[in-house]
Design a protein around this nucleic acid. Structure first.
Lengths: 225, 225
DNA sequence: GTCTATAAGCGGATAGAC
DNA sequence: GTCTATCCGCTTATAGAC
C-alpha cells in the first residue's frame, strides 16, 4: 500500500474520487458506483491485503482490466472507498446538539450510531480495520477533523456537567463508550450472533439493544435509589 | 488461508502447538516462543494477508527457511498464534464471581479487561481482526466454549437482578458493553491517541479511564438523585 | 538446526485488439 | 469502454549443502 498518499491530503489526491478527470458517461458513473460498493464489502470483510481486485471486479460485473480502467491501482480504489465513506462516518457526532435536553441528545446519538451499525456494517468494519492497523491512511483525519469535532462536543458535555445536567463523567470516556458499544454490533457481529443467536437486522433485537444501551450508559448497571 | 482447519478442531490439529512431534531442544523451544511473539505482533498489526513471514523471521532473529522449519506453513503459524492466545483471552470472564458483591465483581472485571488492553494490545487486536472478518478460524470457539461461558455468567447476572442487587439491564448488553469499552483502548489505540494525546501506557490515563468506565457503566451518565 | 539458492504460483498491472 | 492474453514482481515454500 502506498502510504505516501493519505486520505487527508486532498491537495495531492486525485481531484475527483473517480479515476479520470475527463468526461464520463452515465454508464461509467454507474460502473464506478458498483465497483465502490463491491470494493467496500471486499475491503471490509477481508482487509486491504486480503481483498482481491478480480473478485471485486466479478462482484461488480466487470473484468479485472476493466475495473483497472476506472481505478488505476488497488491503492487508488481503496483510497476512493475510504473517502466516499468518510463523511458518512463523521456525520452522526456532528448532530449532537447543545440545545437539546442532554438525555434526549445522548439517546438520539446512541440510536443514530446503532442504526449506522445495522445499515452500514461494512463501512464500520472498514474504518475499524483501518484504525486497528494504526490508521496509516486515516491518520490525518483522526488528529485533524475528528479531533476538532470531538473537542467541540466534549465542550458541550462539560457545559452540561457544569450545569448539573450530566453526571461528572469524563467526556472522552463517554464518547468512546458510545462509539465502542454501538460499533461493537457491526464490527463483532459474528461474535454477537454466536453468543446471542441474533443480529441487528432482527428488529426486536435492534430495539432491545438500543433500549439496553441507553439505559446502561445513562442510568448505569447498579440499582438507583 | 486454509479454512478447513479451525482453532476449535483439536482432533485434526497438530498435537502440539509446535511444528514437530519429536524431541525438541531448549534452544528450539526458545526459538518457537520468539517466533510466536513476533508473529503475534505481525498478524495483529498487518492482518493475516498483510503479514510477511520473512519479516516475522527477521523479527525473531531467524532466516525465513529456518522459521519454516519450526512452522511448516504460514497458516500453521497463524493457527498456533491464535491457539496460544486463546486461553488468555477467555480467562478474565471466568473470574466473574457470583459470590462477590456485584459492584466489586464488575469493577474487578472492568479493571482486568482494561489491564489486558494495556498489557496485551496485540492479542486484543488479533482477535478483533479475526472476529471482524467473520471469525473463519475462531467460529467454533465462539459458539462453543465462549457461548457456554457467557451463558454461565449471564445466569449470575440474572440472579443478581432477581435479588435486586443489579438494575434490570440485559445481561448480554452489559457483557458486550464491558468488552467493547475496554477493548476499544487496545483495538483503536491510534484513534484514542489522536483524540486525547494519551495511551493506556500512561499510568494516569489508565487510572482515569478505569475509574471513568466503572462510574459510567455502573452509575450511568445522568445525575443521580 | 541453520543457511543460500531456487522453484512455484499468485495477483496486480499492462498490451493491444475490438 | 471492454475484453483476452500476458507480463512480471513478490511471497510462500522447497532443495540441498553445511
Amino acid at each position: 500500500m502506498d502510504e505516501a498518499m493519505r486520505v487527508g491530503d486532498e491537495e495531492t489526491a486525485t481531484p475527483r474520487n473517480g479515476p479520470r478527470n475527463g468526461p464520463r458517461t452515465r454508464a461509467g458513473e454507474a460502473n464506478e458506483e458498483r465497483i465502490l460498493d463491491a470494493a467496500l464489502d471486499a475491503f471490509a470483510s477481508r482487509g486491504y491485503h486480503g481483498a482481491r481486485i478480480d473478485a471485486i471486479a466479478a462482484a461488480a460485473g466487470l473484468s479485472k482490466p476493466n475495473l483497472l480502467y476506472y481505478f488505476k491501482t488497488k491503492d487508488a480504489l481503496y483510497l476512493a472507498v475510504l473517502r466516499r465513506t468518510l463523511e458518512l462516518w463523521l456525520e452522526p457526532l456532528r448532530e449532537l446538539d447543545e440545545a437539546r435536553d442532554p438525555r434526549a441528545a445522548l439517546e438520539a446519538y446512541v440510536a443514530r450510531k446503532l442504526a449506522y451499525s445495522r445499515d452500514l456494517p461494512s463501512a464500520s468494519k472498514l474504518f475499524a480495520l483501518e484504525i486497528l492497523q494504526g490508521a496509516p491512511l486515516l491518520g490525518r483525519v483522526l488528529d485533524g477533523p475528528l479531533k476538532a469535532l470531538v473537542d467541540e462536543k466534549t465542550a458541550i458535555l462539560r457545559g452540561w456537567i457544569a450545569a448539573g445536567r450530566l453526571a461528572p463523567v469524563d467526556p472522552h470516556t463517554l464518547i468512546f463508550a458510545i462509539w465502542a458499544t454501538t460499533q461493537h454490533y457491526a464490527d463483532f457481529s459474528s461474535q454477537v450472533a454466536a453468543v446471542t443467536g441474533r443480529t441487528l437486522a432482527d428488529e426486536g433485537f435492534f430495539e432491545e439493544t438500543r433500549e439496553g444501551l441507553v439505559r446502561l450508559l445513562l442510568d448505569g448497571a447498579m440499582p438507583r435509589g
